[in-house]
């Protein structure tokens, strides 16, 4: 495994300085924005640079659903599991997407093209059922069009 470049991490720290305990979550968010996930080496470096214990950063990274400790896909597919989506057939959509990508929620395709997640309500209940790919919304999602929609992301 190649060593992770710590340069971007230092850039984030510099940008956010001074970083104290209270900024641990935005710090991790920015690091994930920069690396796509939270590499272990980077978290250990953040800890020694900021004095925020590594245990603390690890505790945050595993508590909040947003954070990934493993390298992530280039695109993130999020299936809404909110109530409105649930009563309007979220299950069928989930099955269709699982089949199309060949992975389950929380997993990443081998070619790192997609990571699949579920999300607790994206706040567009009137479009239920909803799927988000990266920052795009797909409302009234038709399970038959899964292939077509997924195909739009390389």
């Amino acid at each position: 495994m190649t060593a992770v470049d710590l340069g971007p991490a230092h850039a984030v720290l510099e940008d956010m300085a001074p970083v104290d305990h209270g900024h641990a979550i935005p710090l991790l968010q920015n690091i994930q924005e920069s690396y796509g996930y939270l590499p272990r080496e980077v978290l250990l470096e953040l800890s020694s640079e900021t004095g925020i214990p590594a245990s603390h950063l690890f505790g945050l990274a595993t508590f909040y659903a947003q954070f990934y400790l493993e390298e992530h896909g280039r695109h993130t597919v999020r299936v809404c599991r909110g109530t409105a989506c649930h009563v309007r057939g979220r299950k069928i959509i989930q099955e269709a997407i699982d089949e199309e990508l060949g992975i389950g929620p929380g997993e990443t395709t081998e070619d790192r093209r997609f990571s699949l997640e579920t999300v607790a309500c994206v706040g567009t209940c009137f479009l239920a059922p909803v799927v988000m790919i990266d920052h795009d919304y797909f409302g009234n999602f038709d399970p038959k069009k899964v292939g077509e929609i997924i195909g739009g992301y390389e």
């Binding site: 800890s47 590594a54 245990s55 603390h56 690890f58 595993t62 508590f63």
Partner: peptide, 18 residues
């Protein structure tokens, strides 16, 4: 600060960083 909680809900467990 060697120990932490990992995960949440019923998956929560005591461990060390990584």
């Amino acid at each position: 600060s060697a120990l932490t909680f990992k995960m949440r809900a019923s998956s929560v467990e005591v461990t060390t960083p990584f």
